[in-house]
């Protein structure tokens, strides 16, 4: 099988999960499309194969998350988006769109806490599932989530994070 065919097979196999994930984090199709292309460009430049550890999908999760966070950081610089994010009329219910709220919060919290917040709140992964994904210990995951909660409590005193 040639390199181009290898790439086609790889794209067919994994693009759905990469795109879905980017769409979930970013919330708009155009940005999700761009991130999907960026992720697979990295795959091409890394030799055309998705690294298998712990699984190819988990490697793609990390890369997709990082690229989405980069994009959100760029968006953070846009005052209009910030204004929209902290619109006091924003109606959030207990079963509201968690993506909107978490990603809006992400634009205001320290970078080292952002990816873990996505895995926990958006993906609803457990500590034991996040640890191998990020290559960190369960204790570190726990500590960082505690820090995330403290930051959110300080910055958004009227909000409550689900435990």
């Amino acid at each position: 099988m040639g390199e181009s065919q290898n790439f086609d097979a790889c794209y067919d196999r994994y693009s759905r999960s990469v795109y879905r994930r980017a769409l979930k984090i970013l919330g708009d199709t155009e940005s999700a499309r761009d991130v999907t292309q960026e992720v697979f460009l990295r795959v091409v430049r890394c030799g055309g194969q998705v690294p298998p550890e712990p699984t190819p999908t988990s490697w793609l999760y990390r890369v997709t998350t990082n690229l989405c966070l980069n994009r959100l950081r760029d968006q953070r610089r846009q005052k209009a988006r910030l204004a929209e994010a902290f619109d006091p009329d924003l109606n959030v219910s207990a079963n509201g769109d968690s993506r909107v709220i978490v990603t809006d919060m992400l634009s205001r919290i320290p970078e080292e806490l952002q990816d873990i917040a996505i895995y926990f709140f958006l993906d609803e992964l457990t500590y034991d599932e996040i640890a191998p994904l990020m290559g960190l210990s369960r204790r570190t995951i726990s500590n960082r989530l505690a820090s995330f909660r403290e930051v959110v409590a300080r910055m958004f005193p009227n909000e409550r994070l689900a435990s």
Partner: peptide
């Protein structure tokens, strides 16, 4: 007070990573 995000995944259910 508002709950920012509710974890709807039940114990034992598959994660999004599992499904992908």
């Amino acid at each position: 007070m508002t709950s920012v995000t509710s974890r709807s995944r039940k114990a034992g259910c598959l994660s999004s990573l599992d499904l992908d």
